[in-house]
Nucleic acid binder design. Structure first.
Lengths: 193, 193
DNA sequence: CGATTTTCTTAACATAGGTTAAGTCAATTT
DNA sequence: AAATTGACTTAACCTATGTTAAGAAAATCG
C-alpha cells in the first residue's frame, strides 16, 4: 500500500465540496508533488506567479522588500495552507512577493492554466477557490484592522495566543517582521510580557 | 428629454463589459435611486449589509468602532464609487461597519437578492463584480502595506497628492481617522510639511 | 572539540505619535 | 450682536517603537 501524497489535499477540498473517485483522480493528476530544501524560493519577487502551492509538510514565509529596503513578511504558510500571490495570479503581472521555505518542505503545486482546466473538469472547485479567495480578502481586512487599532505588543500577545506553535517553528526576527517592528523591539516586548 | 439617473452607473459598467439597450433597461429596473441627507446612515454597524450602493453625487465614509471605542474610517466614497460591506454581503453576517453620508447625496442601490437575479439576466455583470471584488482585495492589501511601511506623515502627504480634492470635501478629523492617528497629530504633521 | 556565525537580548538615546488641555477662528443659533 | 458650537491648532508632557551598538546564547561549521 503506497502512501497517497495527495491525501491531505483531497481532504482539504472535501471540507467545502464533495468529490467522487474519478474527480479525485483528476485532481491527483493536476497537482504535482515536490520537495524543497529550507531557505529556497517558491516564488521570486519580479517573477509572475504561475503556480498555486499547497503545503503538505514544512513551512514558508511570503515577504516583500519595502521602499526602505526592509523585508516585510506578509504571512506564513504551514501544513494544509495555500500559498502563492493572488495579485500576480489574478493580474498576470510580476509579483512583488518572494515566497521562501523556512523548513525543508513537501509541496503540491498546480499551474494557473491547469487550474483553469481543472475548473472545467471538476466544477465544484470553482466554488472552493472562490471561497478561498474570499477568505484571503477577509484575512487581509482583519490584519489591516489589527495593525491600525492595536499596539505591536498587543498584536504579539494575540498572535502567540492564537498560534503558539509559531514560536517553535519560525525565528523571532520573522515574527518581528510580520508584526511590522524591529527585532530589538520584539525582544523588549517579550521581556515586558 | 428627462435626465437619466442611471447614466453614470451604465457608463461605469461599460468600462468593463458591453451592454445592449435591453440589458441597460434591465439594469435601470434593478437599481433604485434615492437621495439622502448628510450625516445619515446607509448601513449601521450590527445590521446585515443587504445592499450594494453606487454613489451618483455626494460622499460617504465607512467606519467601525474599535475595541477602544475609537471610530476608524476604512474608506471614503465619492461619485462613481461602490460602497457597502463586502464581508457582510458575502457571509450574511452582521456588519461591523457603519456607512454614513458626509454630504447630501444621490445614490443607487441594489438588494443582494436582486443582484443575484441580475447576474442571471445580464451575465456579463458577474464578471464586472468579480473584478470589482478583486480590486477591493487588492486595495486592502495595498493599504495594509502602506500602513506598515510608511509613517503617518508619509501617508498623509501621499494621500493629498493622490486625492487633493479630499481636503475640500472631508473634515481633517476624518482624514486623521483614516490615517489611523489623532486629529492633533495630523495638525502637527500638516504644520511640519 | 573549538571557532564561527546566527539569533536573540540589552542598554542608551532619538523620534513619532498619543494625551490632555487650552486657545483660535469661523459658522450657526438666538 | 452676543452666545454657542464645531473645526482645527498649539503646547507640554508621556510612551512606544526605532536606531545604534554591544554583548550573550545558541546553532553550525571546520
Amino acid at each position: 500500500m503506497t502512501k497517497d501524497k495527495h491525501q491531505a489535499l483531497i481532504e482539504n477540498f472535501e471540507k467545502e465540496v464533495s468529490l467522487n473517485e474519478v474527480e479525485k483522480e483528476i485532481i491527483r493528476d493536476y497537482f504535482h508533488f515536490f520537495t524543497i530544501q529550507k531557505k529556497k524560493d517558491l516564488l521570486r519577487s519580479g517573477d509572475i506567479c504561475n503556480y498555486t502551492f499547497f503545503i503538505l509538510k514544512g513551512c514558508t514565509r511570503s515577504f516583500n522588500i519595502d521602499e526602505k529596503g526592509i523585508e516585510r513578511i506578509q504571512n506564513f504558510g504551514f501544513e494544509n495552507y495555500w500559498v502563492g500571490d493572488l495579485l500576480s495570479l489574478f493580474t498576470g503581472e510580476p509579483s512583488s512577493l518572494t515566497i521562501e521555505t523556512i523548513e525543508h518542505s513537501q509541496i503540491l503545486k498546480i499551474h494557473k492554466d491547469d487550474l483553469e482546466n481543472l475548473y472545467n473538469e471538476v466544477p465544484q472547485l470553482e466554488r472552493f477557490f472562490r471561497i478561498l479567495y474570499q477568505k484571503a480578502y477577509v484575512s487581509s481586512l482583519k490584519r489591516l484592522n489589527k495593525m491600525v487599532q492595536f499596539s505591536a505588543s498587543e498584536n504579539y500577545n494575540q498572535l502567540i495566543k492564537e498560534q503558539p506553535n509559531l514560536l517553535q517553528r519560525v525565528p523571532l526576527a520573522y515574527i518581528a517582521s510580520y508584526l511590522g517592528i524591529a527585532p530589538e523591539s520584539l525582544s523588549r516586548i517579550r521581556r515586558n510580557s
